[in-house]
């Protein structure tokens, strides 16, 4: 998912008895399924955790433009080019909704971007993998958006009002993303041998990084327990990963493609697939900045920001000029 390993500042979960009256009332509102709105009282830890989580999610949307943008100029038909443009435009729009949601918590988009650019804030590990052939664009829609949807669907019920509403809007657009990805996979998997090979190659490379999107197991994590108590996380990472695998395996079968996991098999007892864990040391390497594209992605974003400074400053200067001209005209008219 787009927010991985979000810390909560808690070292253990407080019981209701240990809470201040404000904290207790807050926790009871969460329990009743009420939405928390920006102006209302909230524990500082809740606010900070949300900033980290929604901010990371927003950063993922905008960095996520890069691997797909990589193929826009090479899309094989005008129709595919238009669909991909529309999809990437949606992702930028998601970034916008999410930055607006974080801003309600008292931190500006510029501050968040500064933290992204300095490496203080992260974005999803998945966008540090390259898109090497056209089927990768299919695999990203199918698997990456597929995994994101798993996460975002449940987050529609999250306790923070602006976040929940952003998720509802985003989810409406996401199913188109996954569909267009799977549609590309079908054309490739049922296409000529070269296309089929690209499709298999894409699945082979994107499978484990997609599983990593859910983050390492958090069943014993205090941060996860705290986030779940606050309802800013609804399911554990393992639950979502299992759901994702169960949904994806039949889709891969339909395509006639092989998931690169010898241990993958149906488990009647649990009513789901058994599967291999991804290589978590790779995940931690990517998070630490050593994924195949970390440097390129960050350099691209920082360059865009720095090269665009004159543009943003110019707009501000114009707004100031216009305001002072208006003020001067107002004085003259008096």
């Amino acid at each position: 998912m787009y927010a991985q390993m979000v810390k909560t500042d808690s070292d253990r979960l407080k019981s209701l008895d240990e809470m201040t009256p404000e904290e207790r009332e807050f926790q009871e509102r969460i329990g009743r399924g009420e939405k928390i709105e920006p102006k209302e009282w909230m524990p500082e830890g809740y606010r900070k955790t949300l900033i980290r989580q929604i901010g990371q999610h927003a950063h993922s949307e905008i960095v996520g433009q890069l691997p797909e943008g990589n193929w826009i100029t090479r899309a094989p038909t005008l129709e595919r080019k238009a669909i991909l443009l529309a999809k990437v435009q949606d992702e930028a729009g998601h970034g916008l909704y999410l930055y607006s949601a974080v801003e309600t918590l008292g931190v500006s988009r510029d501050e968040l971007l500064a933290m992204l650019h300095s490496g203080k804030m992260k974005y999803s590990s998945i966008f540090n993998y390259p898109t090497l052939n056209w089927a990768d664009i299919g695999a990203v829609g199918w698997l990456v958006d597929g995994a994101a949807i798993m996460n975002q669907v449940q987050l529609q019920k999250t306790s923070y009002g602006p976040y929940s509403r952003a998720m509802i809007r985003i989810c409406k657009e996401e199913s188109f993303h996954q569909r267009q990805g799977y549609d590309i996979m079908m054309k490739m998997a049922f296409g000529n041998p070269a296309q089929k090979a690209m499709a298999q190659d894409a699945l082979s490379r994107f499978w484990y990084p997609s599983l990593m999107m859910f983050g390492p197991s958090d069943k014993d994590s205090v941060h996860s327990a705290q986030s779940m108590a606050w309802k800013i996380k609804i399911n554990t990472n393992d639950e979502l990963r299992q759901k994702f695998v169960d949904q994806t395996v039949p889709q891969a079968k339909y395509l006639g493609l092989t998931i690169p996991d010898e241990n993958l098999k149906w488990n009647e007892d649990k009513g789901g697939y058994d599967f291999s864990e991804p290589d978590w040391s790779e995940f931690f390497d990517v998070i630490a900045g050593n994924g195949p594209c970390n440097r390129e992605r960050m350099n691209a974003r920082v360059k865009a920001w720095e090269d665009g400074a004159w543009f943003r400053d110019g707009l501000v200067a114009h707004a100031e000029k216009t305001a002072s001209r208006r003020a001067a005209a107002g004085i003259a008219a008096e």
């Binding site: 433009q65 080019k81 990437v88 865009a304 543009f311």
Partner: peptide, 15 residues
């Protein structure tokens, strides 16, 4: 124009 995707000065311009 599509070459700017993800590289413009501000998110609104990307869109």
């Amino acid at each position: 124009v599509s070459q700017w995707c993800g590289h413009s000065p501000v998110l609104e311009e990307d869109i």
